[in-house]
Design a protein around this nucleic acid. Structure first.
Lengths: 190, 190, 190, 190
DNA sequence: TATGAATGAGGTTTCATTCAT
DNA sequence: AATGAATGAAACCTCATTCAT
């Protein structure tokens, strides 16, 4: 019938947005700049995304899902809880250091009020696997009586901080990662 | 030209900016809105601050200093390191829960690329006292060989997360604060 | 290239345009909206009409012809001039009240500068029958020495106003119609 | 204190809008075009008018008031009703022929759905004087039992049509005006 | 010094029209 | 012939900053 709407193009726009936000900041991420970076006309962007706001929200949800998937990928089906958490930790940080732009972009989106409550909920739903692992790990730790959501936020904050530092100074990345894991593990398991 | 004298006005503008950013978000913080909130004319704002960017940078540095001062105020000159850190922790979180708008604003400014490298350095300098306390505390912990700056960032991230959750749900504030302190202390002192 | 054949589609698009303009106003009548309302693809519209302007012009001419035809239909071949004019008047207004959307759309098109001089001339040509009737009627009236085109415009203006009021308040329609006919007749025949 | 907001500028913008709409049509009356025509910056327009819509509404109300004022100006305090109506008619048409652009613009604004109900009501209120004169005149005529608002609309329609024809062909203006007055008078007084 | 009017670049979004399928 | 994705030129409006008063 006609040229089919292309998933590649959609993805291309999201990728372009990631790059623009990472390099120039959210404040300078004009739709025109994103479209240009994606090699797409100004109007096409609005064919694939209803508004700039939906674009940002979808990008946020997708990136969050990507981190979550990366962290839980290839999870062994046996081993001590500590080993499982360590696996998660490694994958998590590896994703960040391999995708510094996505990490930077995510950090910016995390605080905007452009991101709707609904998107935040979608993200929470997608983190069920991580939540469950955290839940199991904290049994004997200092946060055993706190809401899981809070524990997850704290662990996430430590991870994010570690990522940022690792990205900024790749030489010390391994040392940072290991030390932070030990620290984080104590937060959970005491 | 020369610095205008009314410090009251300067402060008024900074306070207004805090309120506007906290309530409406950084994206909607037009200079006109800030001026209006401050009860000052549009143009006056630029007599006190060279540009919007300067204003935001000064606000950031000032708020960061305020948190630091609050955290280290009334520090007893003796007591175990743990007690000192506990003191810091309590003051720190109390400041945040007493100043939710400032906390919210700070969270927004933290990620903008509007904040210059210089401002970030200024902030680091102002945190010397905290740094030293952290330095002393971590001696036997899992992060004993990491750069202090990194440790400080991790501790700060835990604190910020705790603050945000406490502000969002004041009922559980005390439980959150205590549990997070124990967790944080393990990060430091193992 | 050559005229596409499906007259049904052509008509469907014109009808859709009528509906869209009547309900949403000429300013909101995007070609995409018209195509959608017609159940036809975006691009097809331009197979049937060279441009939006052509579409509007054709719609205008067609609607005007329709009113004219309706007004002169079933005209008896004898009777006093007054009876003939009365017949015309009745049919004219009946068409309008039976086709409020077409009437509304026509009112909008009447003033746009989108309508070309040529279209206006086409319309005038199509109103020859009405013109002749008016011509005969005004013999003894106050406008007996004016250009027929002017008289026709005046009569049309009275009719349009009456229609609009009738459509807006159907209860008083008959009273309006009768009174306005008497008034109009005096304009013609004094 | 500062440069005062200038009524001249406000008026200048309204005048510019009138000119642009009259010459290029409402569809081509971009705010940028209006601003340029007014010799004012793009942004200034929005300092004087909240939105394009308010600008158009104010223009409409103002022009309508102007016509009404013009029509009722210098009304003698005695004389037959017919003389008074004739006075109104003359002034009314004179205004239109002296202000062809305003007349054209008004014709365009009259049908837009950009004009709010409130504006239409404002206009109606401003036409009380005319209404009263019409009311008195129609006592023995064919429309004596119709709503005044309807009669006013009909008279207005005749006037508008006459104006348009007069403007288009100034040579026959006087003949048109006189004939149309006689016709209109019969509508009222039979 | 203080005011707020003035500026114009830039932002998001719409839409008539073209073109690949 | 038919589709609907693609285009890019506007359109309206905001806002940091300057400038007349």
């Amino acid at each position: 019938m006609s040229r089919p709407r292309s998933d590649q193009r959609r993805t291309g726009i999201l990728d372009a947005a990631t790059r623009v936000i990472a390099s120039r900041g959210l404040g300078a991420a004009a739709t025109a700049a994103i479209a240009k970076e994606a090699g797409v006309s100004n109007g096409s962007l609005f064919l694939y995304f209803e508004s700039k706001s939906t674009l940002l929200n979808e990008l946020y949800v997708q990136l969050k899902a990507e981190v979550g998937d990366a962290a839980m990928a290839d999870m062994p089906d046996q081993g001590s809880t500590r080993d499982l958490v360590r696996h998660m930790w490694k994958r998590w940080l590896r994703w960040a250091t391999s995708n510094p732009e996505k990490r930077r972009t995510l950090a910016q989106l995390e605080v905007t009020d452009e991101i709707s409550l609904e998107s935040h909920e979608l993200v929470r739903d997608g983190q069920r696997l991580m939540s469950e692992l955290i839940e199991r790990s904290r049994a004997g730790g200092p946060m055993k009586d706190e809401p899981v959501s809070f524990v997850l936020l704290v662990v996430g904050a430590i991870a994010d901080t570690t990522m940022d530092v690792m990205i900024r100074d790749p030489d010390g990345a391994d040392a940072r990662s290991d030390a932070a894991f030990e620290a984080m593990w104590r937060v959970l398991a005491g």
